[in-house]
Simulated assay, not measured.
Amino acid sequence: MKLRIATYNMHKGVSAFGHQARIHGMKEAIAGLNADLVFLQEVQGRHDENAKRHSSWPEAGHHEFLAGDTHHVAYGMNAVYEHGHHGNALLSRYPITSLINHDVSDHAYEQRGILHAVVQVNTVAVHCFVIHLGLFAASRRRQVQALIQTIVRDTPSEAPLIIAGDFNDWNQRLSTTLYEHLGVVEAFDVINNETKKSAMRRTFSDYFVSLRRSHARTFPAQFPWLCLDRVYLRGFQVEQAVVLKDEPWYSLSDHVPILVCLDIPDLPA
């Protein structure tokens, strides 16, 4: 069975420069992806000042506005302030059977969370984790350890797993830890380093040792250079992974999105 997923840091629905409202353009662009699952970061649940400043600002939270009538939605509120709040969200074409938001804030100046939603894709429960890690390396390391502990505790070892979002891991040091402890692979490492057949033939240790890091460049949007956004997987075959660098994406947010096409081997097409 095929599954289309995307991950996108939407910069609270405003442009990277000038803070112009871009939420309507984002809605149209995200709908055009025809994705089954969309992992979103910096989702504006409420912002009273922007609602006053921009006449077209949606009345609903951005997660509900983007989901519309086509997707189910889970929202994890992380940062709360006097005039609103924002966090992570998951849009799903399939039913969301459970959700929990784990607070992994490392200090008072950054409120971060891990949104865990279980999505029922036909007969298979897919565990989805929406991530937006901190700006400091020490914080990211602690947050990744919290993620690992959460997955080991709450996710069956045989369950299909997707971890996607903004890892802020510009020096690409976190993948080793995730690979070793969770048995996941990153979508672009699969596409760029192995064919699917050779990856299945080799042992995990052989695959890990031979791996060359090749994560996607997604930031800044107008000239993507840093590899901040990731899609880690377990229990899937990766058919395609692309960075969407062209219009309209490079003028909407400060990140560009990743689109990944997957196959669940045990499910019929």
Results as ranks from 00 to 15, higher is better:
K2N: 13
I5R: 07
A6L: 11
Y8D: 01
Y8L: 02
K12F: 13
G13S: 04
S15Y: 02
Q20R: 12
Q20S: 09
G25I: 13
I30V: 11
I30K: 02
L33C: 08
L33F: 11
V38T: 06
L40H: 13
R46C: 12
E49R: 12
K52F: 04
R53L: 07
E64F: 05
L66K: 05
A67P: 03
H71P: 03
H72G: 13
V73H: 08
Y75D: 14
G76R: 03
V80M: 06
H83G: 12
H85Y: 15
G87S: 12
P95L: 05
I96W: 00
T97D: 14
I100T: 15
I100M: 03
S105T: 06
E110L: 04
V126K: 07
F129H: 01
G134D: 02
L135A: 12
F136D: 09
Q145L: 05
Q149R: 10
T150P: 02
A164N: 14
A164S: 04
N171Y: 06
T177E: 01
E180K: 15
E180P: 02
G183K: 02
V184A: 05
A187D: 06
A187W: 05
A187V: 07
F188E: 14
I191M: 14
T195F: 09
K197A: 10
R202S: 15
F204K: 11
V209E: 07
R212L: 08
A221P: 11
P224C: 06
L226A: 06
Q237C: 08
E239M: 12
A241I: 07
L244T: 10
D246T: 10
S253T: 03
D263S: 13
A269M: 14
